[in-house]
Amino acid sequence: MGNLFTDIGKVLEKYGLTYLDGMKNTLILAVVATLIGCVIGFFCGILQTIPYGPKDHFLKRFFLKLLRVIIRAYVEVFRGTPMILQAVFIFYGLPYVTGIAFQDIWTVSIVVVSINTGAYMTESVRGGILSVDAGQTEGAKALGMNHFQTMLHVILPQTLRNIMPQIGNNYIINVKDTSVMFIIGFMEFFSVHKIVAGATFKYFPSAVLEMGGYLLMTLAASVLLRWIEKKLAGRQSYELVNLDQLATTAGTYNYPGKGSPFDERSREFGGEKR
C-alpha cells in the first residue's frame, strides 16, 4: 500500500494541474450541456402539448401532428443510440456532408451532449407535465390564458419542481458520460487518465485519482441539487397579514378593546371582573 501513496504523490506532483484542468472541462461541459438539454426538453415539452381538436383548421392539425412526429423521432434516435457514436457521427459527419468543419472541440462537444440530454429531458418534461393536475390547466384557461401563457406561468414551474430529481439524474449521468468525448479528442477528466497512464504506466494510481475525482464531482452535485429542490419547494410557513386592524380574524385577541390573550383565562379562573 505504501507504494500506492508514493505513486499517487508522484503522479500528482507532475500531472496534478492536468487532472484539475480535466475536472474543470468535465464540469463545464456537464453543466452547460445539462442546462441546454433542459431548455431543449422544456421547449419540446411545450410544443408537444399544444392542443388541437377536430374543429381546428386542417393545416393547423397537420402541422401540429408533424411537429409531434418530429419530436418523437428525435427522442427515439438520440435516446436509442450510444452517445460515443453520436459524437463520432456528428464530428465526422458534418464536415463530410457539408464541408464545414467545427471550429473548436468545445462547440461540437456541447452540441453532442446537449442534444443527447435534450432527448432524455423531453421525455422527463412530458412526464412532468402529465403529472400536474389537469385542473391547473383548466383554472388557467378559465382566466383566459392561452397555451403558452398557461405553460409558462402555471404548468412548467410545477413541472420543474416535479422533475428536479430527474434533472439531477441527468446531470450526474452527464458528469460521468462526458468521458466518452475523449473519442473526438475533448480533454475531459477521463482523457487525462489516458494521457497520464500512457506516459507513466501508473494505471492503478491514476485510476484511484479518477475514481475519487468523479465521486467528488457527483457528490457535490447531489448536495447542490437537494438544496435547489428545497428552494423550489418554497417556504413551509406563512405569516398572517393584518392590513386593517379592525378586520382581525376570529381566534386572535389583539384588536382594540379586547385586551391581552390572557384575559379570557384569568376571567375563567376567577380573576378580575371586566
Binding site: G135, Q136, E138, K141, L143, G144, N146, Q158, R161
Partner: peptide, 25 residues
C-alpha cells in the same frame, strides 16, 4: 364560430370549480 377570440371571452366569463384549481405554485 371559428376565429372568435376565446381568451377574451373567457376572461370576461369567470369560472369557479368544484376542486378550486388554485395555482399551486
Amino acid at each position: 364560430r371559428g376565429g372568435f377570440n376565446q381568451s377574451a371571452y373567457r376572461a370576461k366569463v369567470g369560472m369557479v370549480f368544484q376542486s378550486f384549481n388554485l395555482f399551486n405554485n
